[in-house]
Design a protein around this nucleic acid. Structure first.
Lengths: 155, 155
DNA sequence: TATTGTTATACTCTATAACTATA
DNA sequence: TATAGTTATAGAGTATAACAATA
């Protein structure tokens, strides 16, 4: 091997490869910024959901973030143990989720970090390019979901 | 909750959230298409690498795909057990990796599936938009890697 | 001494099945 | 009968440390 090997174009040009690389790089930076808060991206997302929808039913919140309900239980447990979130029994089988004051305070700090990280990562893009990127990603996401749903039907 | 809850804009507008959604959707479709071949995206990538660089040293191939060497060993083991890949001892401590005829045959089938999947997912994008998307993702990836490296240095 | 490859290990994330209890 | 929540479990994927053998 004279020269350094490169990922072949047939792979490097694939949308899935490009998306995965970008996502890994962005999440790696996010996790480093958020290490001081001990918050993962999904945890930050739940805090934001609970701020927007105080008292939301646990099952709804989990769906919104793409969780299987079986996995959402220990996920909420961890935040409740840290007193960032509380469950309140709404009826015999339903939990409402609420931020605690500590949860709101942590969310405020997390927002500042997340906004700073967002600015850093998108600094090279004009507002117009950033908007365009979001639209292109949305179109890819929608097309991929249609495809996956069609494949699931025919399987 | 009268209306259906939505992921708050402060999350939905983040580049990381959008990338993750897109990547999950694209990989889900890929995995459904590839279930018949029992091939994951990373396995397909390695087959393509070995086709482009026959005899590449195991450590180089692993680096290229972002593997920790400790994880790459069982990854190669699985493909070798299926007779898609062979290790050849190059010197006392170095393995070269090669496709077997069965590996080449599977790669041919995988390419057809991958190309079809790629066309489906990007069908809504003009060639110009597809190119632009790749460029924007590349810029995001580079910026995120610079940021993560800087954060790691200051930590 | 640095590199290659391996084993052992652990943690996160995700997936399914089965169960309780409640509406 | 369907829904909400939980437990148990298993499989990927990824991370680090430690080691043997070799360059």
């Amino acid at each position: 091997m004279q020269d350094d090997p490169r990922v072949p174009a047939e792979i490097a040009d694939k949308i899935g490869y490009q998306l995965r690389n970008a996502q890994l790089a962005v999440f790696a930076g996010f996790n480093e910024q958020f290490a001081a808060l001990d918050l993962r991206p999904a945890q930050f997302s739940l805090l934001a959901v609970l701020d927007a929808y105080p008292g939301i039913v646990q099952a709804r919140a989990g769906e919104l973030l793409g969780f299987q309900k079986a996995n959402f239980t220990p996920f909420v447990d961890a935040l409740e143990r840290r007193k960032l979130v509380v469950r309140v029994r709404l009826d015999g089988r339903t939990n409402g989720l609420l931020l605690t004051p500590a949860g709101r305070a942590l969310l405020r700090r997390a927002r500042r970090l997340a906004d700073a990280h967002e600015r850093t990562v998108t600094a090279g893009l004009s507002p117009r390019d950033r908007r365009l990127l979001g639209e292109l990603l949305e179109r890819i996401t929608a097309a991929a979901r249609r495809d996956a749903a069609a494949a699931a039907r025919s399987a």
